[in-house]
Nucleic acid binder design. Structure first.
Lengths: 210, 210
DNA sequence: CCTACCGATCGGTAGG
DNA sequence: CCTACCGATCGGTAGG
C-alpha cells in the first residue's frame, strides 16, 4: 500500500479565499498557542473583522478547530509528503520524507502535529481523534517505506519496521522539541546524525562494506 | 559535577497542607489540560472552596502556575531522580534514571515536563523559562551520567555524550507521546528496546564480546 | 459580512 | 478562608 500517495492526491485545498485567509492566520496561531488556545474574538479582531463575521464561516468553535487541523494537514502534505512522491519507494522516499519533515520542524512553531499531539493526548473529542488519526497515518507511512526498503533489499531483512519507525520518529520529534524550546540548530544536526547512524547500522549484508 | 544529587537534595516539599492539597489537584489538571488550561474559578469549584479563597494562597494566576511547575518538579525529583541517587554514577545510574522516567511517563498524563515543553515552547514569560530550565537541567543530568560512564570505561571512549543523550531522551519522549496518545504499552517496549540496543552498540572495546 | 446583544466565565479586588 | 463585586472576554445568537 502507498498511504502517502493516497493522502497526498486526496488533498483538496480550500477554494474560498476569505475562509482561506482566516485559516492561514488561525493555523499559525494554533501552532503557537495550541489548538485550544485560540478564541474567536481575538482572532476576528486581529484579522480586522467582526466576531460574528468570522463565526459565520464555521458555525462553531469546534468546527473552526477541525478546519484548522485540516488546514494544517494540507500544509503538511504539501511541505512534507509531496516532495517525496517523486522519489522511488523505500530508502529514497524515506530519506526524503525525514529530510522534509525536519525542515518543516525547523520553521517557527515547529511541526504542527507534534505540538497538537502533546496538547490533546490527555483529552477526548473529535479534534483529539482527528489529530490522533493523522499521527497514526504518518507513522504508518514511515513504516511502509521501511517495509519497502527491506523487501527491496535496501535494509537488512531482520529489521523490525515498527521499531525502526519508532526510533526515526523519535529523533525528529526530539529535534522539533529541542529546537523550538532552545532555538539551537544543533538539535537538528543531532537528529540528522542519529538518523544516518541508525540507518547505516541496518544496511543489508551485501552492502555492509567495511 | 553531580547535578542530580544537587537538585534532589535541594528539594523542599510544601509544608502548608491546604496549599499542598490545592497543588496536588491543580498539578494533575495542568498535566491533562496544560499549564495554561487551568482557571482559578473551576479549580476552586472542583476543590469545594471559593475562588478568592484559593486565590489568596497564590496572589496571581501566573504565581499559581509557577507553583504548579515547582510542584511537578518535586514530583519528578521524588519519582525519577531519587531512586537513582543510591546507584553508582555512570551506566548504573543512567539505566535507573531511564527506567524510572519511563515508569513516570507511563502514568496517566505522562511526563509533566514533556507536555509542558510542547505547550510552552512557542511562548515567552516566566513559566516558559521555568520549564525550559528544568528541561536543560534534565538533559544535563543524562549527559553527565554518560560522561561518567565513558570516563569509567563503561562506554566506548568515542561516544559523544550530547548525541547519545539526545537519542536516549528522544526514545523516552516518543514512548511518552505514543503511549499517551494511543494507550498501547508497545510504545514503552519500543523505547526500552531502543535504549538497550543503542547502549549495547557503544560498549567499550574490551567488553565487546561477540 | 455587519451591529447589537445574551448568559457565563475570566482574573482579580474590596472588605471582612 | 468567605461574600460580593469589578470590567473584560468567552462562545454563541438574533436580525439584518
Amino acid at each position: 500500500m502507498d498511504s502517502l500517495a493516497l493522502a497526498a492526491t486526496a488533498s483538496t485545498p480550500d477554494g474560498n479565499p476569505a475562509r482561506r485567509r482566516i485559516l492561514d492566520f488561525a493555523t499559525e496561531r494554533a501552532h503557537r498557542l495550541g489548538v485550544d488556545g485560540i478564541t474567536i474574538g481575538t482572532l476576528a479582531a486581529d484579522l480586522g473583522m467582526s466576531k460574528s463575521g468570522l463565526f459565520a464561516h464555521f458555525g462553531s468553535k469546534v468546527a473552526l478547530q477541525a478546519a484548522i487541523v485540516s488546514h494544517a494537514t494540507d500544509e503538511f502534505l504539501r511541505k512534507v509528503a509531496e516532495p517525496a512522491l517523486s522519489q522511488p519507494r523505500g530508502r529514497s522516499r524515506l530519506n526524503t520524507l525525514l529530510d522534509a519533515w525536519l525542515r518543516y520542524a525547523e520553521q517557527p512553531g515547529g511541526c504542527f502535529f507534534l505540538g497538537a499531539c502533546a496538547e490533546l493526548d490527555g483529552r477526548s473529542g473529535a479534534i483529539r481523534d482527528q489529530v490522533g488519526e493523522f499521527a497514526e497515518w504518518w507513522l504508518g507511512v514511515l513504516q511502509e517505506e521501511i517495509e519497502a526498503a527491506v523487501s527491496q533489499g535496501e535494509l537488512a531483512p531482520d529489521v523490525s519496521p515498527p521499531e525502526l519507525a519508532f526510533e526515526l520518529h523519535a529523533f525528529v520529534m526530539q529535534a522539533n522539541a529541542g529546537f523550538q524550546m532552545f532555538g539551537d540548530p544543533a538539535w537538528l544536526a543531532h537528529a540528522r546524525k542519529a538518523i544516518a547512524r541508525r540507518l547505516n547500522g541496518v544496511l543489508p549484508p551485501a552492502a555492509t562494506v567495511e
